[in-house]
Design a protein around this nucleic acid. Structure first.
Length: 903
RNA sequence: GGGCGGUUAGCUCAGAUGGUUAGAGCGCUGCGUUGACAUCGCAGAGGUCACUGGUUCGAAUCCAGUAUCGCCCACCA
């Protein structure tokens, strides 16, 4: 791009398609994404939340790329070695489901294929998907270090996972245990609590009569009623429970009831967990199918019968109902209960039903042998996985943005329960545990060759794989090389920032903190945390506020949006659409607006470059300030103010606000005012604006580059050829502007504000009075304090407002004739008119007077308030006095003019 | 049952530590082809900042409460 001929004119509209690929290739060829280790320099590092290899990127990834790339580029431009570490996630259940669906299309069941072949097939898919994911990131301009790309099944990650597993196991933080689990019958695996989504669903509450058994096993006419939403689990009932202090059932405790239909005798036990006010106050206890019942069963030594199989069908324990789906069995049992006279009544009932977050199947609570992480067990005195994570946030070692989400984070870590990490699927990190026929269990990082006890080589590896989030939890340190003591790990860890949607706060951030602190604990107190700051962005919904989902058909492909509007526009639109932590609605209009901004920037640059054509420009020096015109000093002062604002906003992660301010400067100050004012001077041979234009464009492009990298790089490349000075070879590595404070000029800003307001007043009068567009009426500017300023900018006023301005003192007389009047501060604007509608003019002036008097009344009230005078800062009080004085002058002028118009 | 967020112009949203007459984009109205840009320019209309009370010289902003929409967490038979 730097070899573009200097005479090349820019197209009149920005064409992203002709720029983006070329610029991205230019960056890659320059190696700018590759982070170097520079001892002594503080690095910046951020790990990409690895997209699942299930498919293409969605809008959320687009937003993440925009956020991350902005931060990385900003730090890179500040000279820091900046690492954006990309990756992809194998996404166990999600990917397995995708492949299963693919196979199903070919009529193949994965079980017929076998584990090995299934994995081979899935690897094939991964090899196809990863390049597509890279391609998408590239289109969006992501300056990630692809040379360090990590896939969560890479051998080195496998080693990190196994090492973590073994260490946790040896510390007693991983154990195998029989517990109540969430079973997805569709996926055929256990799930963690987080992977179950609960939703209210309409159901029925069945009241069922359990006859009381008398002495000798005779059924009495007496019965005990229970209420249940799951009558099909009756076949696995092993007791009935009541509250110990429930007077209604006092005499039933310890007796026996008869399970209808099945005919089994069940003990009546007393348990504190029973809520006497619910239903009948008596609970049928089914330890095999309900978490609460499981606990009650444990306390009272009741058997756990499992009557629903892993496939979600009733099994042989269900007797006559065996083989039925749960719903079928429910209907059949209800019908049988009715026939037997056991069904007392049925009421409609709404309760929450858990469904698999991956496939939406209804979750069955089942007892199962699974691997667990003991999150609350201490591995050092007073330190547990969950406790350490909470402490890191409480103590401020890890900062959460927005801060309010720290409460949510802590609420989770403070109440965390053991984490079920084993999954009965094939795609993932197989658990590094081997069983020998002799009974020995081997837990090891490397595959063992033989049993250390009996020497047998006949070892069977545990068939389960780990929860995908187990490997994700290692992301920062494992991606940087842990368990090796790699140079990257030493230099880039702890990472600086982390960024993700708040929806995966618990899945990912909390677990990364737990495992980071555990695995890196030798580097405590400061080197153990996985990241210093974690940002949680909101979710992108569709234009109606609905969650985007493939099943709803409302997803927007980021590449399509970026293709239509340009990657820069896409990024800028998302960054400025909302604030961190807040959801946003996707809006085509916003995309178009951002596209228009890119085009505005393009054309502003086009103008500047055309003016510079054939010259070499020296940038303005603060020492020459007195040589510059008012608007020059104004623009440079505004620019420097902007640089300070952008710096503090980006430091505070207020990316959107920073973007809006840069846009405001470029469009409303540089393009709308400075460029317009420069035209007249340049035409008359005053070349001073060139240096100012070039400098403002240069810095504007630098400020905007992190958010809109393509168009800025393209333009900057053309600009640097014509600017003197020691320039970086590319904008991506050019220094980010820092406000040096040399150009701040409050007097110039105040003066230009006045000039702008005067011009606005003139144009307003023109429009109101319907002065013909081509007419150049005289305008008298009777100025009190700002006469010099108005004279200095008179040529610009003449040009931009299409008038002949005459600046006079405040008291100067006006030639006879008709005028339209306006007042701006100490300046009275009198626009000469061919004729005037007296009544209309009088009405307008009276409206203005009323407004002015209202303001005066308010200010006087304020200034009579002694407490205000006493307590408000002097500057504020003075400001109010000044305003009152101005309002007085304005009102007086209006009254004078109304009088002059006569009755 | 706990916790959190939203409520600001017709629409979508900004308003970081309380301080001019509350902003932007889109939309709307009027005018405009002045060689950077019609993906544009100029001007304009449009808001009791959800409501009530409080703190303060001063509140969209801080506090308490209310309404409403939404989200998260919790073993709601």
């Amino acid at each position: 791009m730097s070899d573009a001929p200097a005479s090349t004119r820019l197209a009149s509209a920005y064409e992203p398609r002709e720029v983006e690929d070329r610029i991205y290739a230019f960056w890659e060829e320059g190696g700018y994404f590759r982070a170097r280790v520079v001892p002594g320099e503080a690095p910046y590092s951020i790990v990409m939340p690895p997209p699942n290899v299930t498919g293409e990127l969605h809008l959320g990834h687009g937003l993440e790329d925009a956020i991350t790339d902005t931060l990385v580029r900003w730090h890179r431009m500040q000279g820091q070695p900046a690492l954006w570490l990309p990756g992809e996630d194998h996404a166990g259940i999600a990917t397995q489901n995708v492949i299963e669906r693919e196979l199903l299309k070919e009529g193949i069941d994965r079980r017929d294929l076998g584990r090995e072949a299934f994995a081979a097939r899935t690897w094939q898919w991964v090899r196809k998907l990863r390049p597509r994911i890279y391609e998408q990131h590239r289109k969006l301009g992501a300056s990630a270090d692809w040379s360090r790309d990590v896939f969560t099944l890479d051998p080195r990650v496998v080693r990190a996972v196994r090492t973590t597993f073994v260490n946790l196991y040896r510390d007693g933080l991983i154990y195998r245990g029989l517990r109540m689990i969430n079973w997805c019958p569709r996926c055929g695996t256990a799930l963690s609590d987080l992977e179950v989504d609960y939703a209210e669903e309409e159901a029925s509450l069945y009241y069922v009569r359990y006859p009381v058994v008398g002495e000798g096993g005779m059924a009495l006419p007496d019965a005990l009623s229970v209420a249940t939403v799951r009558p099909e689990t009756m076949v696995a009932d092993t007791g009935v429970a009541v509250h110990p202090e429930d007077a209604r059932y006092e005499d039933r405790i310890g007796r026996t009831v008869l399970l209808p239909v099945v005919g089994r005798e069940l003990p009546v036990v007393a348990d504190e967990a029973i809520r006497p006010e619910f239903g009948t106050g008596a609970l049928k206890v089914t330890p095999g199918h309900d978490p609460l019942d499981w606990e009650i069963g444990q306390r009272h030594d009741l058997d756990a019968i499992v009557a629903i199989g892993p496939d979600g069908r009733m099994n042989e324990e269900a007797g006559p109902y065996a083989g039925m789906e749960v719903a079928e069995a429910r209907a059949a049992i209800v019908s049988d209960l009715e026939d037997g006279g056991f069904l007392e009544r049925t009421e409609p009932y709404t309760h929450s039903v858990g469904r698999c977050s991956r496939c939406d199947a209804v979750i069955e609570p089942l007892p199962g042998e699974q691997w667990w992480v003991a999150v609350n067990k201490e591995y050092r005195p007073g330190v547990s996985l969950a406790g350490a994570a909470a402490a890191a946030v409480r103590e401020g070692r890890i900062r959460i943005v927005p801060a309010r989400l720290a409460r949510t984070f802590l609420n989770w870590t403070d109440n965390m329960r053991d984490w079920c990490i084993s999954r009965q699927i094939w795609w993932g990190h197989q658990i590094p545990v081997w069983y020998c026929a002799c009974g020995e269990t081997i837990v090891a990082i490397d595959d063992p060759a033989a049993c250390p006890v009996c020497g047998s080589a006949e070892l069977r590896q545990d068939e389960d794989v780990l929860d995908t989030w187990f490997s994700s939890a290692l992301a920062p340190h494992a991606d940087l090389g842990w368990p090796d003591d790699s140079e990257d790990l030493r230099y880039f860890y702890p990472t600086t920032d982390m960024q993700m949607g708040y929806d995966i706060m618990f899945f990912w951030s909390a677990r990364m903190v737990m495992f980071g602190l555990y695995n890196m604990r030798a580097h405590a107190p400061d080197g153990d945390i996985p990241f210093r700051t974690v940002l949680f962005h909101g979710l992108i919904r569709d234009a109606n506020g609905e969650k985007m989902a493939k099943s709803r058909g409302n997803v927007v492909d980021p590449l399509v949006a970026a293709g239509v509007y340009g990657a820069d526009a896409f990024r800028f639109a998302l960054l400025t659409a909302s604030t961190l932590g807040q959801d946003m609605k996707y809006s085509e209009e916003r995309m178009a607006a951002a596209r228009n901004f890119a085009n505005k920037l393009w054309n502003t640059a086009r103008y500047v470059l055309m003016q510079m054509e054939g010259r070499h420009i020296r940038r303005p020096l603060a020492a020459d300030r007195e040589m510059l015109a008012l608007e020059d000093r104004w623009l440079l002062s505004r620019l420097e103010g902007l640089e300070g604002e952008v710096d503090s906003l980006l430091t505070a992660y207020q990316l959107g606000e920073a973007g809006r301010r840069i846009q405001g400067f470029i469009w409303n100050e540089l393009a709308d005012w400075y460029v317009e004012m420069s035209k007249v001077r340049l035409r008359e041979g005053d070349e001073r604006p060139l240096a100012v234009l070039a400098h403002a464009l240069d810095h504007g492009l630098r400020l905007l580059h992190p958010m809109m990298p393509f168009v800025t790089e393209e333009l900057w490349g053309r600009l640097r050829e014509r600017l003197d000075g020691d320039f970086a070879v590319a904008l991506i590595v050019a220094p980010f502007p820092k406000s040096a404070g040399v150009w701040r000029d409050e007097a110039a800003e105040a003066a230009m504000d006045h000039v702008i307001e005067v011009n606005r007043a003139i144009r307003n009068l023109r429009a109101e009075k319907r002065v013909a567009a081509g007419a150049r009426p005289t305008v008298y500017l009777r100025a009190a304090g700002q006469a010099d300023v108005l004279r200095e900018t008179a040529a610009a006023t003449a040009f931009t407002s299409r008038v002949e301005p005459l600046v006079t003192g405040a008291g100067a007389d006006l030639p006879a004739g008709e005028y339209a009047f306006a007042r701006v501060g100490g300046t009275e604007v009198a626009l000469a008119l061919p004729e005037v509608d007296r009544a209309a003019e009088r009405g307008r002036l009276e409206r203005e007077l009323a407004e002015s008097e209202g303001q005066i009344a308010r200010l006087e009230r304020q200034l009579r308030n002694e407490r205000f005078l006493e307590r408000a800062p002097a500057a504020v009080v003075q400001g109010e006095r000044d305003r009152l004085a101005q309002a007085g002058v304005r009102a007086a002028g209006l009254r004078e003019r109304i009088a002059a118009l006569g009755g």
